[in-house]
Amino acid sequence: MKTLEKLNYYELLEIAPHASPLEVHQAYKEMYDLYHDDSLASYSFFPPEERREILAMLDEAYSTLMNVKTRAGYDRSLVENGTLKTDVKDRPDMNRTVDAKSPADQSALSIRDNVKSVVSSHPGIQEILARETISGAELKSIRDELGIPLEEVAKTTKVRMLYLEAIENDEFEKIPAGIFLKGFLKAYGQCMGLDADTVASRYLKRMKD
């Protein structure tokens, strides 16, 4: 068993080296639940000093991994000391710029707020949002980028998987027309931290064209 200090940030947060910012955030939140001062589950397990050290390590890991520049630097150091293979880093989503707020603030933020901050600073997503119309495939690529499973969207929005898949696949014939579709689109957009009306109107515009 490795002691915590010997773990790299990915191991510490129990995530893969190619985890998306949202996954980093979720992992941090989960760990925070385990170790924070008032956590019932770990009550009395650690002396206060040790608890502070663990929380400091988590914060450090979180702020490093949430910022593209520091994460790239950290990854390079892992590659250099042989912990990380280079190929894992050949992933398409490395050019995102997310400004990490201080982790203490972050833990108070909801996941949705965090998604919004990723959306607003992600060049790829911004580029899609700048277009006049949005296709289902583009919505899906945004969702993939954010690392949100479709099941989660279904759970949050209460829209059936069948319809969500039809929306992403641009299979208009499978979606009930009119007011329903508009509602589904808005819910989908909102769930992903996007502007709901924009998503709905641009998708519908493309559908009509």
Binding site: M1, D33, L34, A41, S42, F46
Partner: peptide, 18 residues
């Protein structure tokens, strides 16, 4: 009560006591 407390306790034990 948080229904996950038991799971979290086991996680702490596994991680820190091995």
């Amino acid at each position: 009560d948080n229904p996950r407390t038991g799971t979290l306790i086991c996680k702490i034990i596994e991680k820190h006591l091995g």
